[in-house]
Amino acid sequence: MNPKESELKITIAKLIEIAYSQNKGMTTKIVRTKGNFTLKVDQDGNATLTGKSGILIFSGTPALETIGAKIKRVSVTFSKGNNSSVKYKATFSLEIISLSIGGSFDIEELITSCSGLLCKAARAMKQRNAQYEKQLQNIMGN
């Protein structure tokens, strides 16, 4: 079963949330600074969030585990304007094909959405949590 568009968008949101849960200060600095920032995940699940204000390295594996296909690489470029809206373009390289998506979302809404116990529990679980994913999908757009 090939990944759906919504699954890819949710994965991007999850990666940012993992970064935020690992290092709230640095993630906030990177995503709030005006300009571009990037997110890359290699085939071992090593994720790097890079912006003008710094670099954050973390494990992106938990976010990729819920996608059925094996992901070889993820590359995302984000561009941030003056307000909290962020535009992004991403490519997920699978073993044979690649899937690219683009969109925009509200970064403040995303990083403040998941502070409750439900989201902490959902992050800790490797399996999918329908309510948590629905919340992320609403933020990232269908």
Binding site: T91, I97, S98, L99, S100, I101, G103
Partner: peptide
């Protein structure tokens, strides 16, 4: 080689 792109809108 294959890339499948989900486009944000028809202008793209």
């Amino acid at each position: 080689d294959i890339d499948v792109s989900f486009l944000e809108n028809v202008e793209l």
